[in-house]
């Protein structure tokens, strides 16, 4: 049982062990996102207050959630990189940073597009929006730091340290709507008074979130596989010459 998991830690073992499961994740992502987004954008009835504008929740919430979960995953991988010097963890962290930055940007953009007609403003410097923007800049910082240092080993250590320290931002994002008066509403799914969303609206949202998660896992794994293969190719070429 355990040796199957441990074999994933070596690049060769990772290539072997993830081949099948990456495909499963990809198929799950298509099915869940397909149902969640189609039902959310076309089938579900409009909200009693917001009308059709509320449908952006089916993209905004999964993006915002993943921007945070990917940061947590990146910090976890960075921790393994820093303490145990795991090569595979460093590669996974680098890919988490790229996708996480994309999701943070999408969460900010979709929120602004919804905010203009509903709130009356694209942007406001409240606790939730500002801390999410800080998260976006943290991602950009990690990406920039990696490409700024030529020595790959030093770069991975510096990125790992920055990622781990940046994790203090995650609880701030999550609790910002409870700690301060913010323009952003409180959490619908993780709130105290559950459920605050009608079931017919909730199921497509949950499916969409699960689908986005599968997509993110699939994307990170596939890119890491590609990184391993291209590194092996570079080593092989050097061996021949």
């Amino acid at each position: 049982m355990w040796h199957r998991w441990i074999s994933l830690l070596s690049p060769k073992g990772f290539l072997r062990g993830t081949k099948f499961w990456a495909r499963v994740l990809g198929v799950l992502a298509i099915l869940l996102m397909g149902y969640g987004l189609f039902a959310g954008l076309f089938l579900v009835l409009a909200d009693y207050q917001q009308g059709d504008a509320f449908r952006i929740i089916y993209v905004h919430v999964p993006c915002a959630m993943l921007s945070m979960s990917l940061y947590f995953a990146m910090a976890l991988m960075s921790f393994s990189t820093y303490v145990w010097r795991l090569k595979i963890a460093d590669m996974l962290a680098a890919n988490c940073a790229i996708l996480g930055a994309v999701f943070a940007a999408l969460a900010l953009c979709t929120g602004a597009v919804w905010g203009k007609p509903m709130w009356g403003t694209w942007w406001v410097w409240d606790g939730r929006l500002t801390s999410e923007l800080v998260l976006f800049f943290l991602y950009l910082g990690v990406i920039a730091l990696r490409s700024a240092i030529a020595d790959a080993f030093k770069a991975s250590r510096a990125c790992a340290l920055l990622s781990i320290l940046g994790i203090v931002n995650l609880p701030i994002i999550h609790f910002s709507v409870n700690w301060w008066h913010t323009l952003h509403q409180k959490s619908t799914l993780l709130g105290l008074h559950t459920p605050t969303m009608a079931d017919s609206m909730l199921w497509p949202l949950l499916a969409s979130m699960a689908g986005f998660c599968c997509f993110a896992a699939w994307w990170v794994i596939q890119n890491t596989r590609a990184d391993i293969l291209s590194q092996q190719q570079a080593i092989d070429k050097r061996g021949c010459a």
Binding site: V44, L45, A46, D47, Y48, Q49, Q50, F54, I57, M118, W119, G120, T121, V124, L183, Q185, K186, S187, T188, G191, H193, T196, M197, A198, S200, M201
Partner: peptide
């Protein structure tokens, strides 16, 4: 400037408000 604050409740128009 006037900004509207939205709450965390979502429901279709015909459903009664069960959220309290």
């Amino acid at each position: 400037r006037v900004l509207a604050k939205h709450d965390e409740n979502y429901r279709p128009p015909h459903l009664p408000n069960t959220n309290g």
